[in-house]
């Protein structure tokens, strides 16, 4: 098991390298360089910039050096100083832009993922056990709706209803009076009262999908003979279901964890834009629109890194849960 974990971590190193190269290429893709963009901005505001000044700026950014050195400079700063460059759209270092959004992004996405599991796993198991019952048909009906309706559309509908019928302002994470206020108990409560809606909206699609997965997996497992053997042991039905078919049916959920971290980042972008949330997705979107390439590059790098890291964790969890994977892999060789 330990060697499996070590191997799995080693394998991510080339992955991370490739991701960083890719992110760097994307930063370089737009015609011109950041100095040009900066000069244009300065000129637009009425200042004059001469050629010498531009050269100086280029030297300062290291733009006069060859491409591979520029890459090393960029990645070196990220690794050593967590310095992702400067965002022109937000007028501050990229690291600061990410930092202030990271907390909310993780909080919202993690809570909606937890909500998804807490609802979807028991419900999926229940409807599989009660296949073709009324409850099964009702749940199936709603899961199809939940999977088919896009989250951003649901967000729009709920905002419209909340505003027109109840006069409640929906959107953002804080009420206007707390928007710039320092952290206090009141601000925290305000955050909670605003956060449940995006959590639920982001969770709906995933919940519906996970219920379907859980139901299908459970139906497969329930037919297997070991379930009858477990019953023949004298275990209660609940013990049988939790200890036997559920232990196996949970595997796709564990391997699905791989998508959790990247999804936290970008999965709910549309919903987040509609709800005007200060999270990562909308920032990446606006950075791309504004050709703010250092922000975009940083996001791509982070999403890529998170994907490969969460793949490692979901693989380790899966190996811990299912010995067949453990034995079929590195240890067996």
């Amino acid at each position: 098991m330990l060697s499996y974990i070590a191997m799995r971590f080693l394998r991510t190193i080339p992955q991370l390298f490739l991701i960083s190269v890719l992110a760097f290429i994307i930063i370089q893709l737009p015609p011109g360089d950041i100095v040009e963009t900066q000069i244009q901005n300065l000129q637009a505001s009425g200042a004059t910039v001469d050629q010498r000044q531009a050269e100086l700026l280029r030297k300062q950014y290291g733009l006069d050096r060859p491409v591979h050195l520029r890459y090393l400079l960029w990645i070196g700063k990220i690794v050593t100083k967590f310095d992702f460059g400067y965002s022109y759209a937000f007028q501050k270092p990229v690291a600061d832009v990410i930092k202030e959004r990271m907390g909310y992004t993780f909080a919202i996405a993690l809570l909606s993922a937890i909500l998804t599991w807490v609802i979807a796993i028991p419900v999926g198991v229940f409807v599989a056990v009660k296949q073709y019952s009324l409850a099964d048909y009702i749940v199936t009906f709603f899961t199809f709706i939940g999977m088919a309706v896009p989250g951003f559309f649901l967000a729009l509908v709920i905002m419209y209803i909340a505003l027109t019928k109840f006069g409640i302002r929906v959107g953002g994470l804080f009420s206007p009076e707390y928007m710039v206020a320092p952290w206090s108990w009141g601000k925290f409560l305000d955050l909670l009262s605003n956060m449940w809606l995006p959590i639920v909206l982001l969770g709906i699609g995933g919940t519906a999908g996970t219920i379907r997965t859980m139901r299908a997996m459970m139906l497969d497992e329930l037919r297997k003979q070991y379930v009858m053997v477990a019953r023949a042991k004298g275990l209660s039905e609940l013990q049988v279901i939790i200890r036997y078919p559920m232990r196996l049916a949970i595997n796709p959920i564990i391997s699905g964890l791989m998508w959790l971290l990247p999804w936290l980042f970008s999965g709910g972008t549309l919903v987040e834009i509609v709800l005007n949330l200060p999270t990562a997705g909308p920032a990446l979107y606006s950075a791309l629109m504004a050709e703010d390439m250092y922000v975009a590059g940083a996001y791509i790098l982070i999403i890529g890194a998170l994907t490969s890291i969460s793949a490692v964790f979901s693989d380790i969890l899966l190996a811990a849960s299912d010995p067949r994977i453990r034995f079929g892999g590195v240890e067996g060789v």
Partner: peptide
């Protein structure tokens, strides 16, 4: 069926 009569994960 001895092949499927035990849970493979325990």
């Amino acid at each position: 069926e001895p092949m499927t009569a035990m849970s493979p994960v325990r």
